[in-house]
Each structure stands twice: as C-alpha cells, then as structure tokens.
Design a protein around this nucleic acid. Structure first.
Lengths: 197, 197
DNA sequence: TATAGAACAGACAGGTCTGTCTATTTGTCA
DNA sequence: TGACAAATAGACAGACCTGTCTGTTCTATA
C-alpha cells in the first residue's frame, strides 16, 4: 500500500543520498517520483520537512538492516558484534541497499551539509548514532563484556572510521581494518569481565 | 605580502568549511573578503576552481598543523603517534585554528557534498587522507613498529572515527576513546616487532 | 452512477545563483 | 608626473530554486 507520500520520501532519500541535500532540487524529486508539486506541498510544509522525513526513513531502515545482518550472522552476541563489520563491508561494496551505490553515511553527510548542531537534520543524525551505540551496548551486555558502555563507544567509533575511510578513499576494505581492532577490543573486554577490576 | 587572491581563498575556506560548499554563494565570499567580483574571475575560472584552491590550502595547513603538534609533543615516535589524538581533541574543542569553530573534517565534508569519487574535490580529499597515512607510516617505521603500513592504516581509521563522532554527536572526547584503542594498536605492534612473525 | 477528496499539469512570482560586461578608481614604479 | 596594470562598483543576463495558484482529471466509495 504505497502512498504518494511514500513515493516522494523514497525518491527524496535516494537523490539526497546520492547527490546531496542542497544540490538536489525538488523539481528533480518530483520528476523522478512522478508526483505533482502540489501533492508535495500538501504533505510537507517545505523542502526542509521532506529532508527530515527522508532522514527518518533512513534511520529506521538502516538500523533495521544492520541489526538484522548482525542477528542472522550468529546467535553469539560477541560474534554479532564482529559481524557488524562484515555487514559494513557488503554495504561499502554497494550490495546492501538495492540500486543504491554506497555514498557514505547519510547522517555524516547530513551533518556535513547542516553543520550547526542545533539544525533539525543534524539532530536526527546525532540521534541515529546514539541509537546505534545503545544497540551495541545492549549486545555487549548480552556478551557479558566488561565496561559495556565503553566497549560500545569503541566499536561505534571504529564503525564511523570505517565508513569515512571507505567513502573518502574509496576503500571498502576499511571494514576489515576496523574489524581487526574490534576483535582486540572485544577480546580485551572479555578477559576483563572475568577479572577483578 | 597578502594578495587579493590570498584574501579570497582564505575567506572562501572559512565560509565553505563553516556553511558548506553549495550553501555558500560567491557573493558572500566577496562581501566578507572585500574583493570585487571581477577580481575573483580574474584569478579563477569558476567557483569550482575556488573550491579546489580552498581545499588545497586546507590540505597544506591542516597537515602542517598536525605534524607540528605531533612533533612538538615528544621526540619519541611512538609517543608522537599517540599525541595525534591529543591534538585532535584540541581541534574538536575549537582551539586549533583561530576563530574557526570545529565543524568536522573539511575533506569528509567535501566528499559528502561531492559524492562522486572522480570529482576533483573528492580526489583532493582522498589524496589528503593518503598523505596523512604516509606520514603515519613513516612515523611507525621510526618507532620500529612491526607492519608499519598496517598500523598506519589502523591509526588513520581511528582518527577518522574520532572526527566523525566528534562532529556528528558533538562529542570532543571521542579523541580520547580513539587514543585508548591507538595505544593498544601501537603496543601490540611494538611487541610484534621483537618477535618472529 | 453520483460525489468528494486526492492528485494532476503547468504557469507564475520572487528570490538567488553564477558568470559577464563596462566604466571608474586605485596603486605602483619609472 | 605619467603610464600602465590591478582592482573597484554595480548593472545585467540567464539559469535555477522554492513555494503558490488555478483549473482539470482521476479514483474510491456510497
């Protein structure tokens, strides 16, 4: 049951992601989605609102994809943490989201274009990243790791580094470099959990 | 001996960095630099050329700043590698480049706005990152670490992760999270160097 | 089939953008 | 002082952008 609104947000997400927010005009979104201009302004007050809707869709879809990939990789939470980086590599290779080549992280991109941390788009980006840390922290706890908040932050930072490196330098293997370090982080926290700290 | 051209590139760099490339019009650059429009088009064919000149200035200036910070921190190359993350933290706190608040990495930002890897601005970004890896690798060799190419890539990835995290989540302490992991990476490579591999 | 809401095409206003042009002023050096 | 190069202000064209408006056509439901 795809509504006109859904077509719009879907097309907007794709074009914003591939070409940037400021560089993408609404006329192009309308042309590619086959929606009339008045329909857009019936559903959204402005282009800015459409940007926010597209980012919210991306947040939901990306986290869902990542969690699914991690959970189907293994039943062991420690393995799941490491499987995140395998998932990242498939993403970097353009195999994760159909007909959407890898073009960096939509939220890092949003933060780049909307540099002010108070801008609504930047806030959505910030919240997206926090939600991922929350999920990693939960998985760290399930794995019985020591200092789960800290380990989750470490793993999240490795993920960001892999994304930025893969995008800027066109280097999908960055995921495996990050995975190397992630393994060390997780192993250290596993030993730490059985020791007195 | 500051030329009109220098004023222009300086102002362009500042505004592009703070507000983005597409969002910054040349009229604003002209107004803030006090330069006439014809002077701009005497020195540059187009706005795109000005963007490239600004990124080149940033490349030179940033790498110079980073290397200086690392080298003044210690004479020991291993300590210098770790000092990179202290330097990053001062940058994230806005204390590195005068009257220029931290607004992410200019090259990650450029890659975001110019997503196509063949775009000249994206290439400059890619080369900037590679030059930093080269410098890290050289320092790894000076420190006598095993697998210097690999360790340099690890450290560079940690740096990117710290930058992205600090910017998107407004979290300057990301530098210290990265430093934790960097210490582990460097220590492991030091042990590795004295062992048979 | 009748009706009402939704989406349609397309013109339009008003603003902003890059890049060009002209004519004038400034600054430097002999 | 005189001459030449550089920089200036400001108007302008043409393209593009967001957002509004009008009048028509589609579609679902009663």
């Amino acid at each position: 049951m795809k509504s006109r609104r859904d077509d719009l947000v879907e097309t907007a997400l794709k074009l914003f992601y591939l070409h940037g927010f400021n560089a993408t005009g609404i006329d192009r979104i309308l042309a590619e989605s086959g929606v009339a201009k008045m329909t857009l302004y019936k559903h959204f007050r402005s282009k800015d609102e459409l940007i926010l809707a597209a980012l919210q869709l991306r947040d939901e879809r990306f986290r869902n994809w990542l969690m699914t990939e991690m959970e189907k990789a293994s039943a062991d939470p420690k393995e799941r943490l490491l499987a995140m980086f395998d998932a990242l590599e498939t993403w970097f290779q353009g195999k994760a989201f159909k007909d959407l080549r890898f073009s960096g992280c939509a939220f890092i991109n949003a933060a780049s274009e909307f540099g002010d941390h108070d801008h609504p788009a930047h806030r959505i980006a910030s919240e997206h990243k926090r939600r991922i840390v929350d999920y990693l922290e939960k998985t760290c706890r399930e794995a019985g790791l020591s200092q789960p908040e800290r380990v989750a932050e470490h793993l999240a930072l490795l993920k960001e580094g892999a994304i930025a490196t893969a995008h800027v330098r066109n280097m999908p293997e960055a995921a495996l470099l990050a995975q190397d370090m992630a393994r060390a982080v997780v192993d250290a926290a596993r030993q730490g959990a059985s020791e007195a700290t």
